[in-house]
Design a protein around this nucleic acid. Structure first.
Lengths: 220, 220
DNA sequence: CGGCTCCTTGAGGTTAATCAATCCTGGTGG
DNA sequence: CCACCAGGATTGATTAACCTCAAGGAGCCG
């Protein structure tokens, strides 16, 4: 049921049944397998998406084939919002696992926003949050790799509700791409953290052993 | 006259006199000298700003005092929009010259948006554009310095309406900060461009001599 | 003519990417 | 059960990019 998926979306909580129904009316359900491309950077843009299930990554692909992940999108989040007023997608988006998502045509959505101003506020809230996230990404990229890694680990822990434990949901090479580095450097940096007694690593599970030191490192 | 300033803002063109009047009613005019801090990263946020005259820069300040410019804001643009739904400013903002600006309280503005959905669309358009800009910044920071510089120069030219000529409106060290590097590296890179016959430099004026090569470089 | 500030140049060091093996580990088929 | 394989992960050696520190210029304004 579309409305149920919408109701579960943090961004949309508190909307009335009527509002959700109107949204559902313009939502086009889509299912995709893992490793599929949803859109490419530069594609003409006429829709944004709400991820109902699965996970996708937003990334830049460079001339030489190198890629850098800008952000990971999890169930309940939206992506491609910027196209509400842009002609082209600013980055490529691919599925990481099989996904279910809803596609919202820009024109439909803009029309709905005029009728339901509350919806506009929700989108603005989402975009405001995204602006903060991108701001952080810019800041991060100006820091050395160890600082980026430290930040990521601390964020991951707090996101998973534990002060000291966290688990990576994907391969380390994905993390390297997300940090704007390469697997070799990530491996070495993790190693240094372990030898320094900052963390313990077991496969994709991490434990923070010296939080203050890690936080200091995260500052640069 | 406040309404006149608003009317001159690209973001707001096409709004009715009534809508502009309502906006003007919640706009607080502020004047500041050069080199003034408007807000600091982490400050509690309850307003965003429209720059009517002058120029300001949005930047990150690191622990050790190093700074990196995220973007320059010119007359007619807004900044701090993300606080419409955020508690804190994500970055510091300083004036580069004497400025006139308008401050919009978040609460006032949100109220107005519900009454005038059209306004919400305008803000969304602004934020969508900002998202694209930040996206570009992230992409840029993943490229080497020469590529960043090439991009900047090409953008500057097209922005100033000439295919080959442009002029920097501020000191080269500002440009270095904007490129996420240091003056020494900028100086050397410019030098290399000149020696390679890519551009000619005369003080703060630049001329593109070999556009194709510069464009190739901009790709990385 | 100082004394600014900005810009440039040089030398040296650090960070991180690249290239090339090697090592696991989980899955597969014999 | 075990040999084998493929992908990911690690390690080492090398190279390139860029920052830092330090020392000159060059222009500008009192």
């Amino acid at each position: 049921m579309i409305v149920d998926d919408l109701r579960r979306t943090p961004l949309l909580t508190g909307l009335t049944d009527g509002q959700l129904a109107k949204l559902a009316a313009i939502a086009l359900p889509v299912s995709l397998p893992a490793e599929a491309t949803i859109f490419l950077q530069g594609d003409p843009a006429d829709a944004f998406y709400l991820l109902a299930e699965g996970s996708v990554k937003v990334l830049k692909v460079f001339r030489d084939g190198r890629t850098a992940t800008i952000r990971h999108v999890r169930a309940g989040e939206t992506f491609g919002e910027s196209v509400l007023f842009n002609e082209f997608y600013p980055s490529t988006t691919e599925t990481m696992a099989a996904v279910r998502l809803y596609r919202f045509g820009s024109d439909d959505f803009r029309g709905l926003m005029l009728a339901e101003p509350e919806l506009g506020l929700r989108i603005i809230a989402t975009m405001a949050h995204l602006l903060v996230v991108l701001n952080q990404r810019v800041e991060e990229l100006l820091l050395p790799v160890p600082a980026r890694l430290a930040r990521y680990l601390l964020d991951l822990c707090s996101e998973q509700g534990s002060p000291t434990q966290c688990r990576l949901a994907f391969a380390k090479q994905e993390l390297a791409a997300r940090l704007g580095t390469v697997p070799e450097t990530l491996s070495r940096t993790l190693n240094r953290f372990v030898r320094g007694g900052l963390i313990a690593v077991d496969g994709n599970a991490f434990e923070v052993l010296n939080r203050p030191a890690l936080e200091r490192l995260a500052q640069q």
